[in-house]
Design a protein around this nucleic acid. Structure first.
Length: 613
RNA sequence: GGUUCGGUAGCUCAGUUGGAUAGAGCAACAGCCUUCUAAGCUGUGGGUCAUUGGUUCGAAUCCAAUCCGAAUCACCA
């Protein structure tokens, strides 16, 4: 808020003149008043940072600030009502300012008058956000779900901060993995298709990937005459799966397919296209279902040879060097990392080569100011190398690279493994969440007067709302323990709790008729009403923080707190049956704005809010 | 072993550019529906902020060491 900055400036100016203290904004900390002292103020100015340059004690120094600087004058400029300054707090180093009721009512009206909260203070910087990043040989799992929720929310948050956002997905659509599915398909499918079997395309292809693993086992049993009662073939052989499988005919076949694909052999390429097409159809259904989208798709098959020009550039600039064995590398030991190979000795690309090339490709295409990679924390090292390498090449735009690293989603017993039976499959998970939403909603008798279609819509809104909120409320770098039975809750710190607060406001607004944006008469505010307006006015601030920290959980927790305060207000104070017209109009306007910001905030998280539930 | 990231109530998490008496939710217990939707509200109990030391007016927050957990340290992706 403007007034806070003005107060800050007045104090800093005063301290510079009176005590010769450097005019440094960090010396004076402004924060919402600690809840324990809330009755004495809305905002607190912590002046310990300034006081330590003087020989005065807190109280004396604080009094000087209040009485000798322009402090009161500045506040009076913004707040013509009866603001209060708490003198009791001075001894601990705080000036607590409580603005007048009138001041807050004017704030509310200003918020209501704002058409949108998007801040366009800077030039519209362009940011490309990469998220999703699935392999095309198997269906999406819970890890992708966290990734996509995070990525989508991050994009929306950046947009709300005035950035021009490009949502990009990258498909790992080539390589040995998809060839394994293809090999198993050729061997065993008898021409089956998703249509003929009624199986969703990505699952269909994934099933052949799983089948490939079974064929490998069968063949190993045959080769080594392993009896049926030996459960674990690899343990029996004393070899890792990756090593053992290489001696099987089916693996050799898959490798052959990979070579044929690389050579562009028509039949193989056609099958590859066909199987990937099935997968994309399945993926698109899931994206649609969970409400995420992409504007630009990258395919590894099109970019995997990229990056050679960046390597050449690096060699020319002597940032990279050719080792004796012919591999191209970069020395990052000075940056606390190691020597890192960037190109194989046989001149072919590796993962990092591709990513260097793809980054350059994106810059050439979009000239973006920032690029965000939403990728799991397993790849922290990789992205450090990527960013450093590009920076050392003198590419200014590399400074804008940010790896939005997130931790894995784990089951209560540890890491999700598809073979443990515990389902980590995205589609299953979503179906389960919708089922719980339906069950709960019916049990509460909440769908009277709903058509079937509306009811289905509501289950989806609530179920997905619960899941998204569960994932997004947690800081990205913290791992999530997900227990399907217990994690999807609809009470307390959850998505549905917030949705419910919204629905209750909608019920009031339906009965209230038109919401008057201008309040004619001032009313006395309760503590909760004051808290609510204060939170509303903090929304733009929160938006900035969420973008700067690349952290959607900032938004999630803000919206939760807002809903929580509103629920308290709702139970304490009647809106429609307020004592007089002035109070009623005020409370209706307040309610409408709370609903609006709940809606806005949840939209940033990709969560819809119902009008009835 | 090196590096990085985590460790806050029984459980899941806020709070970490140093600030006042460390907060929510779940679970437990006790209340509140003739009044705008009880998926709600109110109250009670629950903490050596992993441990130890340091820095200073002040440390959950910064520094060092230690313990526990994870990731990474490929010419895999």
């Amino acid at each position: 808020m403007k007034v806070l900055n003005a107060i800050k400036a007045s104090i800093l100016d005063y301290c510079q003149q009176e005590f010769g203290i450097e005019n440094n904004p960090n010396f004076l900390n402004i924060s919402l008043t600690n809840p324990n002292f809330r009755s004495t103020g809305d905002y607190s100015f912590n002046f310990n940072g300034l006081r330590k340059f003087t020989t005065l004690d807190n109280t004396a120094f604080g009094e000087k600030l209040i009485n000798e600087s322009n402090f009161k004058l500045v506040i009076a400029e913004y707040d013509k009502g009866n603001f209060q300054i708490a003198s009791a707090a001075l001894k601990t180093g705080f000036i607590n300012v409580k603005f007048s009721d009138l001041f807050w009512q004017i704030q509310l009206q200003e918020i209501a008058a704002k058409a949108q909260f998007t801040t366009h203070s800077k030039k519209a910087e362009k940011v490309l956000v990469e998220y999703g990043g699935p392999n095309t040989n198997k269906p999406l799992h819970i890890g992708h779900v966290r990734n996509m929720f995070l990525g989508f929310a991050m994009c929306e948050i950046l947009k709300a901060n005035g950035y021009k956002v490009i949502k990009a997905n990258i498909y790992n659509d080539r390589g040995i993995a998809i060839c394994k599915s293809m090999a198993a398909y050729i061997e065993r499918s008898k021409g089956a298709t998703p249509e003929s079997t009624g199986i969703k395309g990505d699952h269909f292809v994934g099933d052949y990937y799983v089948l490939f693993g079974r064929i490998v086992e069968e063949q190993l049993r045959a080769i080594h005459h392993i009896p049926e009662d030996v459960a674990n073939v690899y343990k029996h052989l004393g070899k890792e799966r990756e090593v053992a499988e290489q001696e099987t005919p089916i693996f050799q076949f898959a490798k052959e397919l990979l070579l044929k694909w690389e050579a562009g052999e028509e039949q193989t390429v056609n099958l590859w296209k066909q199987m990937n097409a099935w997968v994309y159809e399945g993926f698109n259904q899931t994206y649609n279902n969970i409400g995420v989208d992409f504007e630009k798709n990258y395919y590894e098959s099109e970019t995997y040879k990229l990056g050679k020009s960046v390597i050449t550039e690096g060699l020319e600039k002597k940032v990279f060097y050719k080792r004796a064995d012919g591999a191209v590398a970069i020395d990052l030991t000075a940056d606390g990392l190691d020597e890192k190979v960037l190109l194989r000795s046989d001149g072919t690309s590796i993962y990092i080569t591709q990513d260097l090339g793809t980054a350059q490709l994106r810059y050439d295409e979009f000239a973006m100011d920032k690029m965000v990679y939403v990728v799991a924390n397993e790849q922290d090292y990789h992205f450090k190398v990527l960013k450093l390498a590009l920076q050392k090449l003198g590419k200014k735009w590399a400074d804008g690279i940010y790896h939005l690293s997130y931790a894995l989603v784990e089951s209560p017993t540890g890491r999700f493994k598809s073979r443990e039976g515990k389902t980590a499959d995205a589609d299953d998970l979503i179906a389960e969440v919708l089922r719980i939403a339906e069950e709960q909603t019916k049990a509460l008798g909440k769908i009277d007067g709903f058509t079937n279609e509306q009811a289905e819509e509501l289950y989806k809104t609530i179920g997905l709302g619960a899941l998204k909120f569960f994932v997004l409320r947690v800081n990205p770098y913290k791992k999530i323990i997900f227990n399907p039975e217990e994690s999807i809750d609809f009470h307390g710190h959850t998505g549905p709790y917030i949705q419910f607060a919204h629905a209750r406001i909608c019920a009031i607004l339906r009965k209230a008729g038109a919401v008057e944006q201008k309040l004619k008469d001032a009313v006395a505010l309760s503590n909760t009403e004051r808290d609510l307006i204060l939170m509303l006015s903090d929304y733009p601030n929160m938006l900035t923080t969420a973008a700067e920290k690349y952290d959607p959980s900032e938004v999630a927790n803000y919206v939760y707190k807002l809903a929580q305060a509103y629920s308290k207000f709702y139970s304490e104070q009647p809106v429609l049956a307020a004592e007089n017209e002035a109070e009623k109009k005020f409370r209706v306007l307040l309610s409408a704005q709370v609903a609006r910001l709940i809606n806005e905030g949840m939209k940033l998280l990709g969560i819809r809010v119902p009008e009835k539930m």
